[in-house]
Write a protein that binds this DNA or RNA. Sequence first.
DNA 1: ATGCGGACCTGTTAGC
DNA 2: TGCTAACAGGTCCGCA
Length: 271
Amino acid sequence: MPELPEVETSRRGIAPVVEGQTITSVVCRVARLRLPLPADLSSRLSGRKILKLDRRAKYLLFRLDIGTLLIHLGMSGHLRIVSAGTPCDRHDHVDIHLGNDTVIRFHDPRKFGLVALIGDAAEEHPLLCHLGPEPLIREFNGQSLFQRSRGRKIAVKSFIMDQQIVVGVGNIYASEALFRAGIHPLRAAGRIAATRYQLLAESIKDVLSEAIDAGGTTLRDFFDSSARPGYFRNNLLVYGCGGQPCRTCGCALKSIRIAQRATVYCAYCQH
DNA sequence: ATGCGGACCTGTTAGC
DNA sequence: TGCTAACAGGTCCGCA
């Protein structure tokens, strides 16, 4: 669920409700997610004001008057805004109560998510400081991808999923972007020409932007309690389509595993 | 330094 | 129908 577009959609949905609000209390129902939850989270957060909600990679950054509350949704997490008093479900691990009688509720069955309170210089925190560029900014482009790829033998799919190279390209969008760019996912990153990286960078930007726009559609029913599959699902050209005909050439799409991740591509269109 | 495999968890689905 | 195995959209760590 939480690819970068979903995290951005969450941010856009939640920001108007929480910005400017004061945290009144925090309830944690588990001791740890990916990392242990700070034991004193409630006492440290109570009375603090949420100034702004930002996103960096797939992390949500709640900018407070005393530092930053960092939330990562992992593989299975989501945030919902609910009214105070809404009964909680299984896997509703953390409730952040706000002054306006609403609650930010963190739900994560697989517990791969993360909640941490970090200091003011959030970007220098160990969890964030090694992250590569955001995919949608100008500084991320074919030229920078090309330069960083020289000498690398890693499969290009793993290369673009490396958060030090570029953030936010998850397993789904890696396959989608490579299909759009006509690049074989197993090709060694260091053996791809600059012009093709140009195309790849554009494909990454396009597919993520389109997915964010589609997430905007989900925004309308964002406060629904039902977790429905992302709207962008209908726009996927290869992911989850193994065995089906390629939209371009009609040949059956191939399913393989790269670094233990499901990968789909067209052996005819991608080189 | 690079690249790979395993680990962290639970839920759902495919297959027998 | 019921059981088991495989798999799931992320990230970090340790080893070769």
